[in-house]
Every structure is written in structure tokens, then in C-alpha cells.
């Protein structure tokens, strides 16, 4: 199979997956009893006409299939619909949320990758040493911690030192100067980013360690040692680069979730991102918001997996054969 064929095959697979996910998401939310109108019509002296008017306004009076076709048609035009709860275009709301989510989760994930690679490499290089035991056990411990629990512990530990919620000091009438604003967001991001980093780094450590141990046993590493190359160069220039293949998959998967947001962390620290928006939309039965949020998450995960496939094929051409 040549490269173009491989690419086309993967692209077709990705598009099919997106279509299936869009369809599943649409029907999944509607399987549950109740909808947004049930809550909105709970007002004193509400007449049956109000309920009917709301149902018609949201298009919920049409059959599920009709709603589905309208949804697909609008989606093809880039229209994600109007939020039931906020009566604003879903696309605008989600883009704003996404802009808040990406920097926070990206910072946490990058920090976790750096810490995970570093500790994994040290563990593998110093195998069976105190450093290895310490690093591996810490990684397993961190990996096992539920993010919401760890976040809560950090919240209590750093109470009074770091902001416990929100993305910035929201109480300023005038916008702060750039550096002050940046510092403000930075301080608010420390706890969510730290929580994310601590819960994710363990996985990277364990994968890198295992992959590195395999690579360090290869002949070319022995050759490099025999040639008298410095240890640091053997590890970082030869072994680590070859141990990165499983990391590519892991990173691609994790980066997909950057777009989906770390729901629990965003909820705990009231970080106004896409994860928090979806969490709120679930309780409000805001179908357009839910569909939009899950669509973005689905597309992001599939695209990043697609990219991982491409990178993988480039790193190891045997995959295309």
C-alpha cells in the first residue's frame, strides 16, 4: 500500500467515525426522559400553551428523524444551532469556552509530558536504583489518584496562597495592563494546571520507562557504549528518540482531550472552559450545546489520532506495509 492509499484509507475511516459519533450523540441525549422545556415551563401560572410554544421554538415538536435531518443540514452549513438555555449561537459560546480550555489543558499536558519523559528516562537509565523505585512508585501513586480528589487536596493545601476558582480577578472595572493580566491568569491557572500535570505525568513516566528499558537493551545502544559515547548522549540522542513511538499515541490521545477539557478539573476550579460548559449543559438538557461540545471533542480526538497515524507512519515506515 502506498502512502496516498494509506492516507485516504485513514481519512475515510476518520470521516466515518465522525459521522457515527454525530449520529450517536444526537440520539443518545434524546433517549433520556425529560428535556429543556420540562424545566423552563416550571413557572407559576404557566399555561399549557407556554409549554407548546417552547417545544415548537426549540423544534422538539418534530419527529426525531426530522430533527436529525435538520441538525445534519445545519451542521453542513457550519451552524451548530442556538443554545436552549442561553438563546445564543452554540458555535460562539463553544469557541469562547475553547479559548479558555486550550491554554490551561495544554499547559498541564505539556508539563506532564516533560515531567513524565524526564522521570521515565531516569527510571530506565537507573533501573533498580533508589531513584527508579522512588520515581516508579510516585508515578503509580499519581496515576492512581482521581483528579477531583487531588484537586480538592491542593485546593485545601494552597488556600489563601493561590486563587481557588475562576480564571482571573473578575472584579476589575477597567481591564488590567497586559503583564498584570497575564500574571493574574497565571496565578489562577496554577492549581488546575498542577492538578492536571500531577494526574497525567504518572502515565507518561510508566510508558517511557518501559519503552526505554526495551530500547536500552538494543544492539545499537551497546554499540554506542562500545564507541565510548557519553551516557547522556546515548540516552537523549539515541535511546529516547526511539522510545518515543508509544508516547506519540499516548500524547495524541491526551491532546484530543485538551479540546474536550478536563471536565472534573474545570468544574472543581470553576475554570470557564468547554468541559464545564458541557457539564452545565447536561443538567439543563441543552441539546444543541451538548451536541456541539461532543462534536468538537469527537473531531479533535479523531483528527489527532489521524495525525498520530501519520506521524507514526513517518517515524516507522513498516506500519504502511
Amino acid at each position: 500500500m502506498n502512502r496516498t492509499e494509506h492516507l485516504l484509507k485513514r481519512a475515510a475511516f476518520a470521516l466515518t467515525t465522525i459521522f457515527v459519533a454525530v449520529t450517536t450523540n444526537f440520539f443518545l441525549f434524546r433517549v433520556l426522559p425529560g428535556d429543556a422545556v420540562t424545566n423552563m415551563a416550571r413557572v407559576p401560572h404557566a399555561s399549557p400553551q407556554l409549554k407548546h410554544a417552547l417545544t415548537a421554538e426549540f423544534g422538539l415538536d418534530k419527529s426525531k428523524w426530522e430533527q436529525y435531518l435538520i441538525y445534519l443540514r445545519n451542521l453542513c452549513h457550519g451552524d451548530m444551532g442556538i443554545s436552549f438555555a442561553h438563546r445564543q449561537p452554540v458555535r460562539e459560546l463553544l469557541i469562547a469556552d475553547l479559548m479558555n480550555t486550550v491554554p490551561m489543558v495544554l499547559a498541564g499536558t505539556v508539563a506532564a509530558i516533560v515531567a513524565g519523559v524526564f522521570s521515565g528516562v531516569i527510571s530506565a537509565w537507573r533501573r533498580a536504583s533508589v531513584a527508579d523505585h522512588l520515581s516508579t512508585n510516585l508515578a503509580i501513586f499519581a496515576y492512581a489518584l482521581p483528579s477531583q480528589w487531588l484537586g480538592l487536596v491542593l485546593l485545601i493545601l494552597f488556600a489563601g496562597v493561590l486563587p481557588s476558582g475562576g480564571m482571573m480577578n473578575e472584579f476589575l472595572f477597567e481591564p488590567a495592563p497586559f503583564w498584570q493580566h497575564l500574571g493574574d491568569i497565571g496565578t489562577h491557572a496554577i492549581l488546575p494546571v498542577g492538578t492536571l500535570m500531577l494526574t497525567a505525568y504518572g502515565g507518561y513516566t510508566l510508558v517511557v520507562r518501559s519503552s526505554m528499558l526495551e530500547i536500552l537493551g538494543e544492539d545499537y545502544v551497546l554499540t554506542a557504549r562500545a564507541k565510548g559515547l557519553p551516557a547522556r548522549r546515548i540516552v537523549w540522542r539515541h535511546a529516547v528518540r526511539n522510545a518515543m513511538l508509544p508516547m506519540v499515541t499516548l500524547i495524541a490521545l491526551d491532546l484530543g482531550y485538551i479540546v474536550g477539557g478536563a471536565v472534573l478539573i474545570e468544574v472543581l476550579f470553576s475554570w470557564p472552559g468547554i468541559g464545564l460548559a458541557m457539564y452545565t449543559a447536561v443538567s439543563q438538557r441543552d441539546y444543541p450545546m451538548l451536541q456541539g461540545g461532543f462534536l468538537i471533542l469527537t473531531v479533535a480526538v479523531i483528527l489527532l489520532n489521524f495525525l498520530a497515524d501519520l506521524v507514526y507512519a513517518r517515524l516507522d515506515p513498516r506500519i504502511q506495509r
Binding site: 480538592l152 485546593l155 485545601i156 488556600a159 489563601g160 496562597v161 486563587p163 481557588s164 476558582g165 475562576g166 473578575e170 472584579f171 474545570e266 468544574v267 472543581l268 476550579f269 470553576s270 464545564l276 457539564y279
Partner: peptide, 18 residues
Amino acid sequence: GLQFFDTDDAMITALKSG
């Protein structure tokens, strides 16, 4: 100013820390 928190813990911590 009315700031919204999604958990009581974060809100109470913010109050205690001024």
C-alpha cells in the same frame, strides 16, 4: 460583583482567603 463557582469548596476557600 457576583462571581460563580461550581463547587462550594472553591467558593468557601475563596471567602476564607479574602
